[in-house]
Design a protein around this nucleic acid. Sequence first.
RNA 1: GGGGACGUAGCUCAACUGGUUAGAGUACUGGACUGUCGAUCCAGUGGUUGCGGGUUCGAGUCCCGUCGUCCUCGCCA
Length: 594
Amino acid sequence: METTETASWKRTHTCGELTVGNDGQAVTLCGWVANRRDHGGIFFIDLRDRYGITQVTVDPGFEGTSPELLTTAGNLKAEDVVSVTGTVKNRDAAQINPNRDTGAIEVFARKIEVLAGADTPPFEILDKSDTSVELRMKYRYLDMRRAPVREALELRSRFILALRNSLVRQEFIEVETPILTKATPEGARDYLVPSRVHPDSFYALPQSPQIFKQLCMVAGLDRYFQIARCFRDEDLRADRQPEFTQLDLEMSFVEEDDVVAVMEQAVAAAFKECLNVEVSLPFPRIDYREAMERYGLDKPDLRFGIELIDVAEQAKDSGFKVFTGALEAGGRVKALCVPGAAEWSRKKIDGLADVAQEYGGKGLAWAKVGDGELTGSVAKFFPGEAATALCEQCGAEAGDLLLFAADREAVVHRVLGELRNHVARELGLVDPNVFRFAWVMHFPLFEWSDERQRFEPSHHPFTAPLDWDVDFNEDTGSIQSRAYDMVLNGWELGSGSVRIHRRDVQERLFAYLGLGEEEVQEKFGFLLEAFRYGAPPHAGFAVGLDRLVTLALGKESIRDVIAFPKTTSATCLLTGAPSAVQPEQLAELRIRRT
RNA sequence: GGGGACGUAGCUCAACUGGUUAGAGUACUGGACUGUCGAUCCAGUGGUUGCGGGUUCGAGUCCCGUCGUCCUCGCCA
């Protein structure tokens, strides 16, 4: 047993819980010195812990205030870790701080023990931070003392708990799958881990627990889930970094509706429990094809309208070569009608053209809608009646701005889809407190790879086609799959699919992909073998937790909800990872530097 | 791999078209002050302008390279 002296600093309360009800109580608080105000005799110390800030008062007029206490109080510095023992007192009305939960009381100190002194921190620890990301990440542990960061982590924790509880209520079993696993042949670049025991062989960190969760279904677990860390060695963005967390699940004897219902329950429960936000169920479902036609992207932001409009009929006789040429080449001509944007400056519209080019457009045709006439770059091709017809088709009124894209369908959709998001932001139609979920159904089974000059699975090679008996060689690009995405406010939150449980279909698919028997055996042999012993029809889903929590909090980057995030160049500023290793370590792995 | 923005005191920023000794707020140090709560007041310390080269009588400013952060295209089954 330790002596009582050791325990004398132990807290009786946190810095967030004392109220007027505690008046007169003897308490001990522990925390960091957030601030100290010295009035030439009386000291005020803001003591901070995870739960809040409580004002500690050191008053020479207070009975029991020793000279030592005054000295200690006078020497306190920001971020010193202290234990304060004293008496709770209600403040006079004039001294109440309404901006703080504990603002109606203060603790008159009898004793202050410095548990650990602190150097002056590299930046001030204020809730409202203007410190550079670089410095915040290098000293993330200091950044995390700030309430906004801490609250994001707290919400993330509660969010995960709510999701977990919902799934457990829905009879799911949480299973951990290996982090050291087998390299996957396709998809993202793998992170590899050399094997010491087997020189020249490597583990890979999982891009997702995909195969293991399907094996769980063969095993008869029926309903699996996992809060799974996933790794993909690709370049970073605001909405992705190389290691991220998914809520991953898989279910047996189910189809799309069942998976969708489970996810809707879980997400709605989390929003309700953590944010008190009622998400309306069920989420609307939209066919992939329709999403592309109406919004141009497979992750439409449904918080606003401004849908894409086909103007081929009006464009075909316009005499405008860009339009007619695109149509003759089998492409599309579509438009966006931006309400009230006719007043936008030339500079602003040129900015839109830059956006169009960024996403593969050759340029941007536009027209301002006036009183029965058009002005702007394409106006002269739509005189009189033609202008009227065009405006009617677009639902355009005087004061609106029409934006056009004419190109291959993929380019038209991409450009207008991104422009749609762009102009909505410009128009202030994007409210972070509105949550518009949707399911995008029936993604294409394959997509064309320019790089490899062939069709590849757009989801993964275990995704079932909508028609089990479809011929993969026929009209390959438009074969529909049973893959679906969950979309929120223009972000892809997650995706899933009904899997192929029939060995014959799986073999036909591998054959179509050009994977020889040997190759299939080497890469997926264990999965196909498992399927030989009775695979139930199954389907699953995985939702990106980092993204979900980011949007739930109205943040802009997933780094805001990750405790120790990576930089854009995939490094950790705090630890310095990645870093060189000792030659001995390399030798043991039989790796030579080149 | 490509494009863009940024890099000046511990921190956040300023410094007109190249021109005297690179400034301010804040932090920090010292002093004053017994009711503040981002306390206030007075004084002070603090700079290889990311790094390397170049142009120039003279570079924080212009040029080239490089490093780092952020955004982004490609990439992300």
